[in-house]
């Protein structure tokens, strides 16, 4: 079984997102280790991009902080290589098309394979544009994660049929960021996904509390949380690992 599939084998999955290099790469590493120790099933590692058009202010600022601190794409690969010495759970990248393209897609996926990255989420690469990345990914054993949005409607079945790894279900309209209420009819979206594929699906965008995570995971195979974790990093800086650890534990307990 692939590492991504393993992430969904231990009850519902809890998937934290962390922007690499915010506030520095050593803190990122410690935060990831704390998340793993407290039950994270898969970790989404954000490679910073200067103009992240799918992000709300919290993750946008995390990207800018990391870049201001001089984080390079190669620093992130080196971090992954260090983590892979002892971390077994699935690690996927979340970044933007230009980060991959400008690195050289072939070289990027080769480095993913060498360091042990299992999948890639590119929010600015929809179904119609995935071809140029998918084929290279397949040659390097890296799965391209598809996204489904509240507006996908007739596109859901098409996306689901070709999905691999897991499907990232976007909970709400708009960009990333915590929300007090999520009103999308996720059950219907997930039903169409399930009719078309056995690939698991996890819900992200707007989730911050254990109650929300439980509700989202009830409707799917897991919950993804980004901004709520980045807020802890914003608040506690280098002291974040213990707070993120406790948060991950509370979220995993809620969804499992």
């Amino acid at each position: 079984m692939s590492r991504i599939r393993n992430a969904f084998a231990n009850g519902k999955a809890f998937i934290p997102f962390i922007t690499c290099g915010d506030p520095d790469i050593a803190t990122t590493e410690a935060v990831i280790r704390a998340a793993v120790a407290n039950g994270a099933d898969l970790i989404e590692l954000g490679i910073p991009f200067s103009d992240p058009t799918a992000e709300g202010p919290v993750i946008m600022n995390a990207n800018l902080r990391a870049l201001t601190n001089g984080i390079r794409t190669d620093d992130v690969f080196e971090l992954v290589a260090r983590l892979r010495r002892d971390i077994e759970i699935s690690l996927v990248f979340m970044t933007y098309a230009n980060v991959v393209f400008s690195y050289g897609s072939e070289k990027f996926f080769t480095r993913c394979q060498q360091t042990g990255i299992d999948g890639l989420i590119l929010p600015d690469v929809p179904f119609e544009e995935k071809g140029e990345f998918l084929e290279i990914g397949h040659r390097h054993g890296v799965e391209l994660i598809s996204m489904v949005a509240p507006t996908s409607a007739d596109r859901i079945s098409m996306i689901a049929r070709e999905a691999e790894g897991f499907i990232y279900v976007v909970s709400s309209l708009g960009v990333t960021g915590t929300r007090t209420r999520i009103t999308t009819d996720l059950a219907s979206i997930v039903r169409v996904i399930r009719e078309n594929t056995a690939v698991p699906c996890a819900v992200g965008f707007g989730i911050s509390t254990p109650e929300q995570a439980r509700k989202m995971a009830d409707n799917s195979d897991g919950a993804i949380v980004g901004s709520a974790i980045i807020k802890l990093l914003e608040r506690y800086g280098k002291d974040s690992p213990k707070y993120v650890g406790a948060y991950v534990k509370s979220m995993k307990d809620a969804v499992r």
């Binding site: 058009t53 799918a54 098309a97 929010p123 600015d124 690469v125 929809p126 179904f127 119609e128 544009e129 598809s146 996204m147 489904v148 949005a149 509240p150 507006t151 996908s152 409607a153 007739d154 596109r155 996306i159 976007v170 309209l173 708009g174």
Partner: peptide, 12 residues
């Protein structure tokens, strides 16, 4: 060219 945008905007 192309359409490198979030899935949320594709139907729009």
């Amino acid at each position: 060219g192309g359409q490198y945008i979030p899935e949320t905007l594709m139907n729009a």
